[in-house]
């Protein structure tokens, strides 16, 4: 399962919102194939009865009391934005239902 095609790289790049040039896609497909080949070694381990570890902390998630705390002033919130108008972020037209 380790072979990864150019098409798959393009599909993945689409999901990740990355645009790859011809050469880049070619190189990435090669690199990913090498890496996936390497990680293939894991398949040799029998893990059928092994619980996955998502996080090494043996904790239950702590909870926060439902209290309002001051956040950032709107002017500060948008201060770093590449494009803002008033206190709103500006992006190219969002068409309802279309994917960004």
């Amino acid at each position: 399962m380790s072979a990864i095609t150019r098409d798959e790289v393009e599909r993945i790049a689409g999901l990740a919102r990355l645009e790859l040039s011809e050469g880049e896609a070619e190189r990435m497909a090669g690199d990913l194939a090498t890496i996936l080949d390497y990680v293939e070694a894991l398949q040799a381990l029998d893990t059928s009865d092994v619980e996955p570890t998502a996080n090494p902390v043996p904790l239950e998630t702590p909870l926060r009391d439902d209290r309002v705390r001051p956040g950032l002033a709107a002017e500060v919130a948008v201060a770093g934005a590449p494009h803002a108008e008033g206190t709103a972020f500006v992006v190219p037209k969002v068409i309802e239902g279309e994917e960004g």
């Binding site: 398949q43 381990l45 619980e51």
Partner: peptide, 10 residues
């Protein structure tokens, strides 16, 4: 699979 092997490493 990786998460399971993570358990084995622990």
């Amino acid at each position: 699979k990786a998460q399971q092997v993570r358990t084995l490493l622990r």
